[in-house]
C-alpha cells in the first residue's frame, strides 16, 4: 500500500507522518502542494505544521493549493484521507469536514500528552481501535478550538461523526470536547492531536510502565493498511 503525505509551505510534521506510514508497513510517498499529481497513492495524510504561516486563517491558503483539487476529488471518491492538526484545519477549510477551528479559548499555545476516547471505530483510520478505548497521543496547537453552529453540531452528534473526544481535560475549549471528526462515508478523518508522534517506543508519550513508550498513534496507520489488505 502507498500512502501519500502532502507537504505545503510551512508543513512541519510530514517526515514524522512518513515514518508512521513506514512503521505501519506501507510505503510513504511525498506529495507536493503545487502539483496536480497524487502519484497513484491509495491513501493521503495532510500533516501538521503552520502552512503559509497560518496567514488568513489556519489551513485556508493550503486548502486552495493546486493539489487539494485532486485530494478533494479523491476524498469524494472514497480514498482514505487523514488530516492531523494543521491538516485537520485544511480539511475543514476545504469543506471535507464540517465546522471550524478557532484560537484556543485560553489564548495560549498548548503542548501536552492528551488523553482521548475513540468514539467511532468504523472509519478508515480507526478500525483497529475498540469502541470507547482511551488512548494518549501528543497535542500541540494554538488554534484547536472546534466550533460549529447548533444545527451542524446536532447533525455531527446525531450521525456519530465525532471520532475522538478529549478526556480528563478539554485543552482548547472545543465544543462537546470534540478532538476529531469523520465524514458521512468514514474515509476522511481529521483531528487536532498528533498520532504520528506516538508510533515508536522511545519517542512517544509516557505510559504507566515506561517513559516515552506510548504507541497509541500507530493504530491509525495500521487500521488503513489492514483495511487495504482485507480488500486485496
Amino acid at each position: 500500500m502507498r500512502v501519500g503525505v502532502v507537504t505545503f509551505p510551512g508543513s512541519l510534521d510530514e517526515r514524522d507522518a512518513q515514518r508512521a506510514v513506514r512503521l505501519a508497513g506501507a510505503e510513504p510517498v511525498e506529495l507536493w502542494h503545487s502539483d496536480h499529481d497524487l502519484q497513484g497513492v491509495d491513501a493521503i495524510v495532510l500533516p501538521g505544521g503552520f502552512s503559509y504561516g497560518d496567514y488568513l486563517r489556519c489551513g485556508a491558503i493550503a486548502a486552495h493549493s493546486p493539489i487539494m483539487r485532486e485530494v478533494v476529488d479523491a476524498a469524494n471518491s472514497g480514498m482514505p484521507v487523514l488530516g492531523i492538526c494543521n491538516g485537520f484545519q485544511v480539511l475543514v477549510e476545504a469543506h471535507l469536514l464540517p465546522g471550524g477551528l478557532i484560537r484556543n479559548d485560553h489564548g495560549q499555545f498548548v503542548r501536552r500528552d492528551q488523553q482521548l476516547r475513540v468514539e467511532n471505530t468504523s472509519t478508515a483510520w480507526t478500525s483497529g481501535f475498540e469502541q470507547g478505548q482511551e488512548i494518549t497521543i501528543p497535542l500541540k496547537n494554538g488554534e484547536g478550538g472546534f466550533i460549529a453552529d447548533a444545527e451542524t453540531l446536532a447533525r455531527i452528534e446525531g450521525e456519530g461523526l465525532v471520532t475522538f473526544r478529549y478526556v480528563g481535560l478539554n485543552p482548547n475549549g472545543s465544543l462537546n470536547d470534540i478532538a476529531g471528526l469523520t465524514n458521512e462515508r468514514g474515509n476522511v478523518v481529521g483531528l487536532m492531536p498528533h498520532p504520528e508522534h506516538a508510533v515508536e517506543a522511545g519517542f512517544g508519550p509516557d505510559t504507566s510502565t515506561r517513559m516515552r513508550s506510548g504507541v497509541d498513534g500507530l493504530t491509525f496507520f495500521t487500521s488503513v493498511v489492514e483495511q487495504a489488505l482485507a480488500r486485496a
Binding site: L56, R57, A60, V92, E93, G99, G100, I147, A148, D149
Partner: peptide, 9 residues
C-alpha cells in the same frame, strides 16, 4: 469563499 470562513466569520 476565500477571505472569510462563514463557520467562524
Amino acid at each position: 469563499s476565500m477571505l472569510s470562513n462563514s463557520v467562524i466569520e
